[in-house]
Design a binder for these strands. Structure first.
Lengths: 227, 227
DNA sequence: GGACTCACATACCGTGAGTACGTACCCAGA
DNA sequence: TCTGGGTACGTACTCACGGTATGTGAGTCC
């Protein structure tokens, strides 16, 4: 039945018929897997269910992927890439660092409410991929965006920050946003919860501005006399 | 061989001989499981390996626990409880909220470097338990401590914060600390990384104090005119 | 001291990830 | 146009592992 299948295929002009078929089934596997992983989780999703959903067999799956984990990684990358695109789209045109931060935070709080992102990236990503690969993937997409924003926001102050300190701040904000995002997503009223998170982080940023205006230095703020 | 076994048994005066044996094997199962889960992860640890390590059989395991996940949950609780104890111990005697915050942060950054906590609580907890149960457990131990500290720190300012906003702030700091802690644990130089995290969060807190001194209100800091 | 129960041990089953191998189809070259 | 080869799967199987059903012997209680 070539007619119905052709609907599923992306138009890739330079690719041969077989290559298009192949790419199509690979896409189908990833898409079906994304849905099932999101709904039932990694451990509770069998490869049989995935290949049945994609209307192929395990032979096809193991032709395209080295195993279940590799398939999950493909799904993970897809979800992360989508999230990163969404966030970066929300940043387009904004020049003021503080405003970029606000827009980015808003966008992130939106993304973190998508079930795919919550389940696949936040909940199961670290366990399935292991923390190393998880961090690698993150640093190439959403974390990179956060780092960018933090860089421009803190660069707007008069402080001189080395790269390690910037990374630390970015990690802190990234963790804060992830955790806060989770509380937004599980809230009865996500809108209100998102407003609260925005207010709280905005308050933190306001603290930065206040410190910047009063010319406070960074490295000595915490190094007091005890210990 | 009652002599060697008796060494393993906790002294529980009111318990009968059988009850003590029983408690001892249960403890052994949890301890062995903690080690194996930490080293190989949940999915890569077989029940056969656990019962072999505890020198019992699966019958014993399924007598004490309803299954693999329930065993993990027992391990999780143990690790979380230990962590909570460690942190609370570091807070004893401190009265000044800001100092409590510092001590708590230091203690947390120490805890998060323990492999059991990182692997079982942070990395695999959400995936194995599901986010709901994961959060429930957290809120009864370490998160409760963080919430306490945040409450006293923000209460030290002149702001009137409702409970929801306090929870939001606590979530944000908890997420920030977890994420930052992870970067500390994976760092080449954990000491230095911990110092950086402490400085960064100290900087944020300094921002709070700065705002408090200049009498800035909370809810309107972020609500500007656009959108 | 005998019935009873608890704390396991043993033997087994079902499921699901991974593998070895077979095969149909497309495409390049003669 | 035929053909060899390689790609893209399908089929049938193995094996590890979580879970269960049932047996059993050592404590416990009356």
């Amino acid at each position: 039945m070539p007619k119905s299948v052709s609907r599923l295929m992306p138009v890739v002009p330079g690719a041969s018929r077989r290559q298009q078929y192949s790419a199509s089934t690979k896409r189908a596997l990833v898409e079906v897997a994304e849905g099932l992983f999101t709904e039932h989780g990694y451990a509770n999703t069998s490869l049989d269910a995935i290949v049945a959903g994609a209307r192929v067999t395990k032979g096809a799956l193991y032709h395209h992927f080295s195993g279940k984990q590799a398939l999950f990684e493909a799904v993970f990358e897809r979800v992360e890439t989508d999230a990163s695109k969404t966030i970066n789209k929300a940043l387009r045109g904004r020049r003021d660092p503080w405003e970029k931060a606000r827009a980015g935070l808003r966008a992130f709080l939106g993304v973190v409410q998508e079930p795919q992102y919550r389940r696949i990236v936040i909940q199961e990503g670290p366990a399935v991929l292991g923390y190393e690969r998880f961090r690698e993937q993150e640093e190439r997409s959403t974390f990179a965006t956060v780092l960018d924003i933090v860089r421009s926001v803190l660069g707007a102050g008069s402080w001189e920050l080395d790269e390690a300190m910037l990374q630390t701040f970015a990690r802190i904000f990234f963790g804060a946003m992830s955790s806060a995002g989770e509380s937004v997503a599980t809230s009865d009223d996500p809108e209100e919860a998102a407003d609260r998170v925005e207010a709280a982080i905005g308050f933190i940023i306001a603290g930065f501005r206040s410190l910047a205006e009063s010319g406070v230095e960074l490295p000595d703020t915490l190094v007091t006399d005890d210990e």
